[in-house]
């Protein structure tokens, strides 16, 4: 469970161009949620996603992952938290270009110290679900956008994190690939029980998720 209490975040604090990016956010996200932060551009949805993902700090308030407060953690502890508890899917896929699809999917598991046998088994399992099992030996650059995003999803899911944070995952995909991706992510959410949080203004995602958390001007509405 993720719990946010009175979370505030400013950009350019104490400067004339100061932006109050997150305003008194109070929110609880239960395990296994399939939710979307929705709102117009600049409303703070990505900032909130990044704060939850321990990628960004907040200026005040508290964020708890289960019972652990993550806002007070040091840089190393935040990196470890991201590695062990979270999975990330980015708009630009961000795969490691010199590693094969198979190695990219197993990357986080490798960092976590899983054995080669466990990694191979899990990679194959995910590749079959995401229909990229024929591409395991390929390099990311030889794949289409949709295929790369599926590899990114597999990488995020592989180590079975508590939560996956997906920021505009369909932004670079056509509608057919977007729908396919959302179907797959929903299936993963249901099969694996992983919480998945999206930040997007894609209607397709809004129609797919079970909960929409609306934001405007940095506040929940």
């Amino acid at each position: 469970m993720i719990k946010l209490q009175n979370v505030n975040k400013y950009f350019y604090k104490d400067e004339p161009r100061e932006v109050h990016a997150l305003r008194d956010i109070n929110l609880t996200i239960e395990d296994g949620e399939f939710s979307l932060f929705s709102g117009p551009s600049g409303c703070g949805k990505t900032t909130l996603l990044n704060a939850i993902g321990a990628l960004d700090s907040v200026d005040s308030g508290h964020i708890f992952l289960d019972e652990r407060e993550i806002t007070t953690l040091g840089e190393d502890a935040r990196t470890s938290l991201r590695l062990k508890e979270m999975g990330f899917i980015f708009q630009a896929y961000n795969l490691v270009p010199v590693l094969s699809v198979e190695e990219n999917i197993g990357f986080i598991m490798k960092l976590q110290g899983f054995s080669d046998g466990e990694i191979t088994q899990r990679v194959l399992e995910l590749a079959c679900i995401l229909e990229i099992d024929k591409l395991l030996k390929s390099l990311p650059n030889s794949l289409s956008g949709g295929q790369q995003q599926r590899v990114a999803v597999a990488r995020a899911v592989a180590a079975k994190p508590k939560i996956i944070l997906a920021d505009e995952p369909t932004a670079n995909l056509d509608s057919a690939n977007s729908k396919k991706l959302m179907d797959m992510m929903r299936e993963l959410n249901e099969k694996e029980g992983i919480s998945i949080l999206f930040a997007s203004h894609d209607e397709l995602i809004r129609d797919s998720v079970r909960r929409v958390i609306k934001m405007n001007d940095g506040a929940l509405v």
Binding site: L55, T79, R82, L83, K84, I108
Partner: peptide, 16 residues
Amino acid sequence: IREFGIMLGIGMHYKY
């Protein structure tokens, strides 16, 4: 630089 930033972001420690 972006690749390294993403690696740090997804949990790869700086020492690696």
